[in-house]
Write a protein that binds this DNA or RNA. Structure first.
Lengths: 350, 350
DNA sequence: ATGAAAGCGCTAACAT
DNA sequence: ATGTTAGCGCTTTCAT
């Protein structure tokens, strides 16, 4: 009957429930119930317990609790590029929403790499997070989670073959919105700058523009478009070149955060200002550190709504709710100071 | 001798080590050793184990492992404002450094709020992360961790009373560097824009500028300085006003990310360009989504170095290394295209 | 109103 | 080279 044969690690001076119990002179069961408020106890006992907790500096052990309860109260968030302000803001909002429901957030950055995403997904799965919000890079990792029955919500991108609920933005509609705004201001010679042509978001947005153009009676093949390129430099250079042509385009539609940055740089290099010389409309997210709200006309991705819906869809799965529907959000156009009527007021001399 | 009396939760179809063992027809011990590579086993057994793992879709259970091993292989990172590009980049780099050493990262945003920071610190402590990297808001939470003997590294800010190692940047030296650069280009009428005057970083940076100015023989009280304000609007407006004065300042030194944004907006509104009309030097961090490297002359905070050093200091503590020294990094000045000699080439007509 | 004790899934000491 | 089993700290059933 050998006791204490093992001692896995030097457990430091870690204070356990048992310590608290013996200090308070009662059983661990009661202490546990006091902490969780899961049973009626006399005020005296409760006071005793709290005193002991205070005295010993007890701080709980959620690992042990998780093992016993079979749930960790942790959610995972996987983004594909944390330096992109869209995902930065998303991370911030998801964390807030999760905390509101008593969940901790584990967060990881796949850096757009399928192998990295695979590792992350495996790690979170082993970590037994209660659910995962994934901005997916490739389909197979989403499928893996889906197959393992781990509650999953996809954001930003989705796969028809994966049955998990998703939260996406109607990029087609958003881009149309932006284009219509410029068209209504009288612009007919519009340049669009967009990101990677293989991304579904880019494809949707460009399609939205084309559709809008066609509805307005313009021949879509006339649309001038530039790929911002991996570094954005291609977009900047291309724009400078296009803006030097006659007739000069009267408006620019930048279809992603990155494209918008390239556009701003290109305009600056071309010594042109908005909206006096050229109108500019962006697509993406505003942030105090990035594009302050309303300084630029933007189709804004409703990040907070995305975050809240994603968390909600996850919690619904955890609650075994039936009839869980994906969410398609409509972006809003916020008219700022960068767009105006074609041939607006002439540039003032400095 | 009642077996299986309890069944805490519907454990789903969760596959355990035991399942793998019985499927492979061997003991759990061997399976565990195969997975961890902690014991010699025959190739045949190993193959058997992997086959069973594959077949059942076993994915480990790091909660159970953590409980047993007494370590979680998780590090915590607490930043004070995730939307600030400095912290965004830091988070990204810390995660990369942690992953390199086999650690997962839990991340949280204190939003500059002491109460939020307290909650986070408590949660991470209960979560039994192996160590915490903290960009602190208030001293007491750092002290709490320190008292609980949880390995801790402070970044960005430090407290003389807290003994934990820290990684900071020499802001005094960095600001001097920036000022000297402008002075050497011939600028004598320099405006500085800075952030919250209560922050130690702001205080250090402003002091660095003053010191540099004094060494060069200028009377420090002559320095024009503007507080960018909570929203940055104050900085923008103040700058526009100052730039309208005669003689016009020939250079702007923006001492924080936020100030730099205000400066760029103010310059744009004043129809002035860099470096033709005014030279501009920033202080902070570059990012593809924010300020592309070398487009603006910047004193760059060495974020990657901060991240790597912070992780290293944490791992040193975990390894019970002796003689752990805090790290003070020196920022670098990267001369970009926004600063030039005073009275540089005149503005080209557009 | 309180306690005793099983056992969550794993690792590792102690067997063989 | 492989197996048996205690026990990590907690929750919760069952008993008092």
């Amino acid at each position: 009957m050998s006791r204490s044969r093992l001692k896995p690690v030097a457990s430091g001076a870690s204070v356990t429930l048992k310590d608290v119990a013996s200090r308070a002179g009662i059983s661990v069961a009661t202490v546990s119930h006091v902490i969780n408020g899961t049973r009626k106890v006399t005020d005296e006992t409760r006071a005793c317990v709290f005193a002991a907790i205070e005295e010993l500096g007890y701080s709980g052990h959620s690992i042990a609790r998780s093992l016993r309860r079979g749930r960790t109260a942790m959610l995972g968030l996987v983004v594909s590029d944390i330096e992109n302000p869209f995902f930065t803001t998303l991370a911030s909002r998801v964390q807030r929403a999760a905390a509101l429901h008593g969940y901790q957030l584990i967060f990881a950055n796949s850096e757009e790499r399928p192998d990295r995403e695979r590792e992350i997904v495996e790690a979170m799965s082993a970590q037994r997070v209660d659910g995962i919000i994934l901005a997916p890079v490739v389909q197979e990792n989403a499928e893996l989670l889906s197959k393992r029955r781990i509650p999953l919500t996809l954001v930003n991108r989705r796969f028809p073959e994966v049955a998990s609920p998703y939260v996406v933005v109607d990029d087609f509609a958003g881009a149309s919105l932006a284009f219509d705004h410029l068209w209504d201001l009288g612009h007919r010679n519009i340049v669009i700058i967009h990101g990677d042509e293989h991304r579904s978001t880019t494809i949707e947005r460009v399609a939205g523009v084309r559709d809008s153009y066609k509805r307005r009676g313009g021949p879509p093949e006339q649309i001038l478009s530039i790929n911002a390129g991996r570094s954005g430099d291609a977009g900047e250079a291309g724009l400078v070149e296009l803006l030097a042509r006659a007739p000069r385009p009267t408006a620019i539609l930048a279809l992603s955060n990155w494209s918008l940055l390239a556009a701003i740089r290109g305009l600056h290099r071309s010594l042109l200002r908005c909206p006096d010389d050229v109108s500019l409309v962006g697509y993406g997210v505003t942030s105090p550190y990035w594009i302050p709200a309303s300084s630029i006309s933007m189709v804004e991705q409703p990040v907070t709504e995305i975050a809240e819906n994603a968390v909600k869809l996850l919690l619904d799965q955890l609650a075994n709710a039936s009839n869980i529907q994906p969410v398609v959000l409509r972006p809003r156009l916020t008219v700022g100071q960068s767009s105006g009527p074609v041939g607006g007021r002439p540039r003032l001399p400095s």
